[in-house]
């Protein structure tokens, strides 16, 4: 919308154009930050020439400088490098969590909403159970049961998000089911599976996209929380949550907490901004 009006030669007031410009920069910035995170996770080596695992003991606990942007940690490792190398695991584990939540939750919600009756009652109670257990506690017991590492933390986070997606998908499916075009498709003799796949699924899943993006940001936080408690990969891994957790023992050198926290917050904030924007443009 805004881009189109920006290019159109219509005579919009200067204030209007400024307003449309004022909204855009945060979106552009958010997308840029997310793109940078993706780049960090794919090719961390391009962004730094320090070693993320082996430090220089003589350079330990240095304050941020031009050489060490985020300073160095207690083993003399460049913190910026640690953050860049930790991005891959932090971001991809959040992705795993979202995929689990969307696929499992979406399927449950789709079937429950579409078939109704007993299927709905059974699935609805299952979802109630998933939602009744505090999300973080649920993730903690699941990761306890399957073992402590970052992938398992991602799986646990995904499981804790299933209930949410199932509930939203179900209500969307019910809404779509009552639409006139679905009814007419029934009358025209479309089979249940055909209608489910061709009409209900695409329409209902549209509103799941912004939620999935939002959940991506939330998953980063939950996984960081699990890593912070030590339920992710042990050091020398450098997941953001783990870096903050290590930094908390060195609060006299606060950049060890603030730098990875800043990156985490910037990423989640950008992701949330994008999610809001997607919901609005929908």
């Amino acid at each position: 919308m805004t881009i189109a009006s920006f290019h159109s030669p219509s005579r919009r007031s200067a204030i209007g154009r400024l307003a449309s410009l004022r909204v855009q920069p945060t979106i552009v910035l958010s997308i840029a930050i997310v793109a940078l995170m993706i780049a960090w996770s794919i090719t961390p080596g391009l962004f730094t020439n320090h070693d993320p695992i082996n430090g220089v003991p003589a350079h330990k606990l240095l304050a941020p400088s031009a050489e060490n942007w985020f300073g160095t940690d207690h083993l003399g490792r460049d913190l910026y490098t640690r953050v860049v190398y930790g991005t891959s695991s932090s971001v991809s584990s959040a992705l795993i969590a979202v995929v689990i939540g969307v696929v499992a939750g979406g399927l449950i919600g789709l079937l429950a909403g579409f078939f109704g009756g007993w299927v709905d009652i059974v699935f609805a109670r299952m979802v109630d159970v998933l939602l009744a257990i505090p999300k973080f506690l649920l993730a903690v017991i699941v990761v306890t049961a399957i073992g402590f590492d970052t992938t398992n933390a991602a799986i646990a986070t995904g499981v804790s998000a299933v209930g949410l997606f199932a509930r939203v998908m179900r209500s969307e499916v019910i809404k779509t089911r009552q639409a006139t075009f679905v009814e007419s498709s029934f009358l025209l003799g479309g089979s249940r599976w055909h209608i489910l796949w061709r009409h209900v699924f695409p329409n209902a899943s549209r509103s799941v996209l912004p939620l999935a993006v939002l959940q991506f940001g939330d998953s980063i936080l939950v996984i960081a929380g699990l890593a912070f408690l030590g339920y992710g990969d042990p050091p020398p891994a450098s997941d953001w949550g783990l870096l903050i957790s290590i930094g908390k023992d060195y609060l006299k050198w606060p950049w060890l907490v603030y730098a990875p926290a800043f990156v985490t917050i910037a990423t989640v904030l950008s992701v949330n901004r994008i999610s809001r924007w997607l919901r609005k443009t929908d």
Binding site: G225, V257, A261, T264, I265
Partner: peptide, 12 residues
């Protein structure tokens, strides 16, 4: 507020 991990708020 929703973008800040609560352990970070605590540490700050």
């Amino acid at each position: 507020f929703l973008s800040v991990p609560n352990f970070v708020i605590g540490l700050v």
